[in-house]
Design a protein around this nucleic acid. Sequence first.
DNA 1: TTGAAAGCGATACCAG
DNA 2: CTGGTATCGCTTTCAA
Lengths: 343, 343
Amino acid sequence: MSTPATRRRPSMDDVAKAAGVSKGAVSKVIRDAYGVSPEMRQRVEATIRELGYRPRIAARAMRGSSFSIGLEIPNLDSEFFTQIMKGAASQLSGTNYQLMIAPGLGELSGTPVLENLADRQVDGIIAISPEVTPEWLEELSREVPVVLLGRHDKSASYDTITNDDEAGTRLALDHLLGLGHRRIAHLTLRMKNERSDAQPPHTVRRLMYERVTADAGLEPLVVYSDLAGDGAYLSAKELLVSDPRITAIFAGNDTLAIESLRAIADLGLTAEDVSVIGYDDIRMAGHPLVSLSTIDQFGEAMGRAAIDLLMERIRGGRTEPRHRELEPKLRVRASTRPASPTR
Amino acid sequence: MSTPATRRRPSMDDVAKAAGVSKGAVSKVIRDAYGVSPEMRQRVEATIRELGYRPRIAARAMRGSSFSIGLEIPNLDSEFFTQIMKGAASQLSGTNYQLMIAPGLGELSGTPVLENLADRQVDGIIAISPEVTPEWLEELSREVPVVLLGRHDKSASYDTITNDDEAGTRLALDHLLGLGHRRIAHLTLRMKNERSDAQPPHTVRRLMYERVTADAGLEPLVVYSDLAGDGAYLSAKELLVSDPRITAIFAGNDTLAIESLRAIADLGLTAEDVSVIGYDDIRMAGHPLVSLSTIDQFGEAMGRAAIDLLMERIRGGRTEPRHRELEPKLRVRASTRPASPTR
DNA sequence: TTGAAAGCGATACCAG
DNA sequence: CTGGTATCGCTTTCAA
């Protein structure tokens, strides 16, 4: 037997012994802390390379930091989260930190997933949790820096990055109204525990939809749906069948919008009959075969900004909360057309 | 000041003291190990609930397991990886284990990302790394159970889950040939370090493409492209412009295929002019506006199976390698049509 | 069945 | 600038 089945990886002790120095010295070298002579550093670094030593994060985490950033996402059904992941990952590249993405799944999301990250001693958490209560998040943020994406509740202990959902909703609806639409439905996500103080983006958009339609003297028409499986597709289909006067749908996000387009196509209709506008500007929205009008809320920028805010706390020691809001932008494409007088 | 800025979370010691028992007893209870009396268990569990105690994974990891499974993905550009994440996440739900997804990013992928996971003491690793050498992976698998997705190299120390890429490629090409196509291009991913012994899926597909076209007496036409940004779109566009005799594209995956459709649409062409078939069957492929013919390789099933294989090693103690291969399935949709005689 | 104590691999303080 | 040592929170012998 030439190679053993399992091999112990070298520890800091091994490095210290091989280099003929103390553990403390090795520790200082790998953290490039103050107080090591050039020769010492060189010798230790040579030994580290020689042995292929890499510190174990678990041990480091017990005393200092884990060099991991946790990113909690509610599910894997919306491509918007991919944008955020990309932004966060790119902003972290070149640092010692690694992004650990923890996806929720159906019922199992929010609190338990965030706890899992905290239990793993991440140095910071990015949360996209519409359903977790502000109190619980404040509790969490006493333990580890937290930045919450999307929600508009302003806490004194965690940071937030939001999109101006009221402005975005107004952009979308003004666009539709400008095209002459008078019967505009709103397809949105079903929230499990709607609370007035946690202000998830989809709730803000719905409330704004209700206000704008009321101001325009229109009847609001809200449909709630799930993202998983064919839920959104079926909801949209039923909506269009049940009310043939609808000429436009404002969808709460692009995934819902694209499922609406699926329903429209399957009903033998086109954008001439029913206009659709989404929210997020995911990649497929710009595809010529889809060409979905939408509100860009710059997910990658949100992901990057989230890392920046965390690093300000982790490395810079900031303790006062910061709340950043990004401006949405209307992207007009082929899925929105002047209202059809017939249909 | 009523609430402190930061609060220490309770440790196992705190629980032990509060319950009037030893740390060891508490440890046994949370791992439900052998040798605790019902009363002891009850008392400890009550105290745990009362204090809201949750063990720190870092400390557990130093002696036992971290209850984390690492999933390395090469990038966030392909929705196929989302399928795998979903499968893995769902298979893990209901266990104590948490999925930690570590995405690569451009140049930074493969080896360093896998090392990052190993350094975090995950109990098992799922790797989707076309570019890492078999030797390096064997090395890694001496430290932690590894299951490699996609690649066809069979190691004695790590498990693999593959798709029968030769069969899938044949399905796709036979379909195109059956429609009368004679000039079929292949759009595939650019590999950085192509090695003959690591057999990444895209290389296997390309080789099979070359064999099948040769057998059919056709001229092979391979174009290499990147997935990030507009790389694939531009490659497809240039391909179609440079050679007007092309009537069909076999794309190495659905993302490449959808970018090809983008190029076709932008050139004012349709499926009547150029047929496209992809590989993966991502969600958008089934959308009526896209309607992409493709080869389903059941990404969710791969993700689920990967967790199963890891658990067999982690909990069951299996040490012999296992290599599973899934059968691909042709999905015929509207993007493939009989070859246009003109174009 | 239970408790005491050693040890995992780092960090950080404190002498020298 | 360097080395020794206590320490983090848990698991795991080993006695009682």
